[in-house]
Amino acid sequence: MGNLCLMLTYRIIPYKEEAKEGERFSATYLPAPEGRGRIDNPRRYRAWYLAREPSAAVAEIFGQWPTWNSEMFKFGTSGADYRGATRSLVTFRLPDDLPVLDLDQAFALHERGMKPTSVIERNRPATQSWALRIFNETNHAGDRLWSGVQWWSFHRPHWRILGLWDINPIPISVEALSVNHPAVIDAADALDKLLES
């Protein structure tokens, strides 16, 4: 129970085509953890935050923005190092048999003494605490049981968000975002955002 097969996942990044693999602005770059993410535990692991749907990845980045237009894909005054970067949608491939604990399963929560509010609450010490407990779950041989967890998006419950540790997802495509990108249009429609040119 709770084991979920994955194939494609999505993430929005600042992207530069000339960036080498693993470098800042590349599809494989994972920023140093700052401890602010929902499942962050920087002393134990680095976490990839990914979405199961392209529109969910868009919503995770732009969902709180009041106005959606072409300006939101630019970096404005973010600094000279961002010059030439584009906000882009990266599609990643993951192993089909990756063991991910699905926190949308009642039994998974019950086994760990958790409630749905434990998952979605915006209380970072609490969510990071249960994430570390799940990270430390092992089988009888001492092997870690899970490569990460999945929960539902704050913006829409049918969108699924992943937090993965100790894994390097493989990027298979990078697409620059615009107001005409299907994922942006779908997210705007789901969140009732007016898209302006």
Score class of each variant (00 low, 15 high):
T9Y: 05
I12W: 14
I13R: 00
K20I: 05
P31L: 08
N41L: 08
P42L: 14
R46K: 13
W48V: 00
L50E: 02
A51S: 15
S55N: 07
A56H: 02
A56V: 14
V58H: 03
E60F: 01
I61E: 13
G63E: 05
G63Y: 00
Q64M: 10
T67H: 12
T67S: 12
N69C: 13
N69S: 14
N69I: 13
S70N: 06
S70A: 12
S70T: 02
M72H: 15
M72E: 13
M72A: 08
F73G: 05
F75T: 15
T77V: 10
D81V: 04
A85R: 02
R93P: 02
L98A: 11
P99V: 11
V100A: 12
L101V: 15
L103R: 00
Q105A: 11
L109S: 01
K115R: 05
I120V: 12
R122L: 10
P125C: 01
T127G: 05
W130N: 09
A131K: 04
I134T: 13
I134V: 06
T138E: 05
H140V: 02
H140K: 02
A141N: 03
R144H: 12
R144V: 09
W146I: 06
S153P: 15
I161D: 12
L162R: 11
L164R: 01
L164F: 14
W165T: 02
W165M: 08
D166I: 11
N168P: 02
N168G: 05
I170M: 13
L177Q: 04
L177V: 04
L177R: 06
V179L: 06
P182C: 08
I185C: 04
D186M: 13
D192C: 06
K193A: 14
L195Y: 07
